[in-house]
Write a protein that binds this DNA or RNA. Sequence first.
DNA 1: AAACTTATTTAAATCGTTTGCACAACCGAA
DNA 2: TTCGGTTGTGCAAACGATTTAAATAAGTTT
Lengths: 345, 345
Amino acid sequence: MSVTIKDVAKKAGVSPSTVSRVLSNHPRISRETSKKVRDIMEELGYHPNIMAKSLVSKTTNSICVILPKPAEELFNNLFFMELIRGIVTQANRSGYDVVLSSGANEKEEVEAVSRLLHGRRVDGAILLYSRHNDPVVEFLQTNQFPFVLVGRSDEYSGILSVDNDNVQAAYEATKHLISLGHQRIGFVSGPQNLIVSQDRLLGYRKALQDSNLEMRPEWIVEGEFLQESGYRAMSFFMNLPERPTALVVLDDVVSFGVLRGLHELGFKVPEDLSVVSFNNITLAELYTPPLTSVDIGIYQLGYTASQALIQLIQSDGDKQFLKRHIIPHRLIIRESSMFSLNNTR
Amino acid sequence: MSVTIKDVAKKAGVSPSTVSRVLSNHPRISRETSKKVRDIMEELGYHPNIMAKSLVSKTTNSICVILPKPAEELFNNLFFMELIRGIVTQANRSGYDVVLSSGANEKEEVEAVSRLLHGRRVDGAILLYSRHNDPVVEFLQTNQFPFVLVGRSDEYSGILSVDNDNVQAAYEATKHLISLGHQRIGFVSGPQNLIVSQDRLLGYRKALQDSNLEMRPEWIVEGEFLQESGYRAMSFFMNLPERPTALVVLDDVVSFGVLRGLHELGFKVPEDLSVVSFNNITLAELYTPPLTSVDIGIYQLGYTASQALIQLIQSDGDKQFLKRHIIPHRLIIRESSMFSLNNTR
DNA sequence: AAACTTATTTAAATCGTTTGCACAACCGAA
DNA sequence: TTCGGTTGTGCAAACGATTTAAATAAGTTT
């Protein structure tokens, strides 16, 4: 039996509406009434019931983060932790709570989101990386719920998104290898249906093309964001009759798999194979050897996503906020790619 | 303007209460009424308003996870990701949502929890690792809110907690080193105010004592759960006139710092220094060299915490559930400690 | 002193559910 | 026929806030 607005009102000798107005800093409340009511609130230990408030105001001051389907896979990645940290920090700063949501499959995902948004449990959603024809995106669009996509969205127009320029990032990463003298550069992709995979592949292709380098289909390997994928890709490449001398790998954890495998087989990095990676999670610097990686500002990505979503919600869906935010990236060069082939020729 | 229970009622030609009863599978609703109402719900796309429901039922079907104060530090650790994965998975399975909450300092933490629980936004809380005299624990206790502590709690009685037997785990880890022939074993602790640090230190001490090994105060170094701490500890130990030959390190990420530093200085692991660690995050296996680590069942820890809390909530605070759950641990031996000193003598 | 402002405060409706109680209809048994 | 017992449904009062419109008090003009 907790203390309600009525209890406060009675004790203070005013009406509930007055207490409510004190709470929301209504201008037409006299100094002394305000003081008196506040004192009583303090004395009774009053806390407004958020549910009741939400019911009438039709707003919950919370957002949900939808974890992508293969949560098992992605959760293993520091990447998501960092992203969520950015989201939670910003949301809390703006007075919003963050509800985590996931689903075993796409259907469950949509159900969860539907329950949260239709049920007015949250005001908006953050989607972490969308796929082509993502049913969740479709759901959110047709129902006109505010949401922000972390990742690209060019197939849908009028979507709020936060992303890197992944084409350019991959371009630079590849160019870096080329500038070191590499001519045979492989590519370890993430899942093909993720837009980020495609964008980075595009950048890689562009860089090779610009330098008139050969582009072999067998040098492009698809995988998941798992260490095993890296290991598998590595062993595939190293068994090729004509091996690449460098690899562009889409994720640090995958790169760790590559490096680990190379070490086991007695190959030297970067001498036998150079690696540039993406995401630059904190462990990248700490690995043996330290990993060259594109820092894509993960925390910033989450922080900005949260901020943009809340802005959209508070603007009541103003179209002007439905834009694409680009977070800058930066190539961090470390040992895994420090070796220049030119020097050894 | 979303569709409410009244809209469904009107269209179905029944009263709102009947619709509500259909929704909650009330026994005394006829088959045909139920079918009819359900069809209309489907047709109109009805979704119950969770806020309204919570208001009257005084229950929210959600719990919050309180991220410890130095979130910046801890978030960097795969450990938390794994823990949260366990929590979210179980909670969702039980029909609960998970709200993430954090605060920049202890005061903010208490405020956030107070808002969530007093404001009836969540039904209970999960605390990740408590400190001595944790103000959040105190708050939860005096207000009689259901909560579960991930970590030990023996100073407080009648608390629901989920934990490992950390004393025993550290004992085994240390014994493992001793069995390999090590006689000079150092200890890299976590923050001293964490109970987990103290428990493991105890286990380490006990193991040394049991084997009549020397216990030197300068071989015990306190740090944080950061790579830098490991690096610092390592350089401290290696500059000692009489170095330890093995280290017990409280966290994998800290161990990575140790290993990285050793590699930089040209020391060999495990020959020059063996390392056993705790937590066994996925990267432990993948590191160079692979890290011997005590697997404490992180996912299980989170899963169990969530399960126990929800059980407590649903039992309406039944004291019988206020017990301590112990999750089993297992020492995973890998290269960082595979070297036996006995063999080289 | 009446009339008119302006500054505060209150009463009452509302948000979308749940649920105790009342009631009607039907059943078989006395 | 009358009664006790089921079964199925509706009424209306909560739940704890916000908010519109109206009332009251206080201050200013004329």
